[in-house]
């Protein structure tokens, strides 16, 4: 194989180079690739984990935000309900108070009317008695002067005529 010799191929060197490469491969695999690949994997895992954590946190934040919103909405609705109830109650109270007042006033008016009627009756009666007496005395005085004393029956008739309304 003269051509191999011309090209400088020597099987001893060839084998030496193969061995050299084999050693290099072994040592690099053991001391470079393995640890570096391991740390790359570890870092990738860490990053993935942190990303997952961040995502979970974000989700939790969103959920709590949503819950907060829901809470506020509920509270608002409740407050609105309470306010309405209060309004209704106030309205009721007002209405009942008004009604009571009206009733009282009415009662007052009725009482007053009754009292006035009674008083009027009384005054009338008193006035009638007073006038009867007055007329009697006046008649007595007039009749004493004139003819004779009328009979009590006639007097009563006369008074009755006066006092008849």
């Amino acid at each position: 194989m003269e051509i191999l010799e011309k090209l400088g191929i020597d099987w001893r060197i060839l084998i030496a180079q193969i061995v050299n490469f084999g050693v290099l491969l072994f040592v690099l695999h053991r001391f470079l690739y393995k640890p570096v690949l391991a740390i790359l994997q570890k870092r990738a895992d860490t990053i993935e984990k942190s990303l997952g954590d961040a995502r979970a946190l974000e989700e939790r934040l969103k959920a709590s935000e949503l819950a907060g919103k829901e809470l506020i909405k509920n509270a608002k609705r409740e407050a609105a309900g309470l306010l309405e109830d209060a309004h209704k109650l106030a309205e009721q109270k007002r209405a009942s108070a008004l009604k009571k007042a009206k009733e009282e006033v009415e009662r007052f008016v009725v009482d007053a009317r009754e009292k006035i009627a009674i008083e009027k009756e009384q005054s009338l009666r008193e006035a009638r008695e007073y006038f009867a007496d007055l007329v009697l005395q006046a008649s007595k005085a007039v009749l004493e002067e004139s003819v004779q004393e009328p009979s009590p029956a006639t007097v009563k008739k006369v008074i009755g005529k006066f006092t008849q309304v």
Binding site: G8, D10, R12, I13, A16, Q17, N20, V23, L24, V27, L28, F31, L32, P35, V36, I39
Partner: peptide
């Protein structure tokens, strides 16, 4: 009986360099 050529010397140096650098790189990861 092994002839040592200049190319071989370079491959040895290069291999050694790679090994040393690789070890330095992974010594304190």
């Amino acid at each position: 009986s092994l002839p040592v050529t200049n190319s071989m010397v370079v491959t040895w140096i290069v291999s050694l360099l790679l090994i040393v650098l690789g070890m330095v790189a992974t010594r304190r990861m």
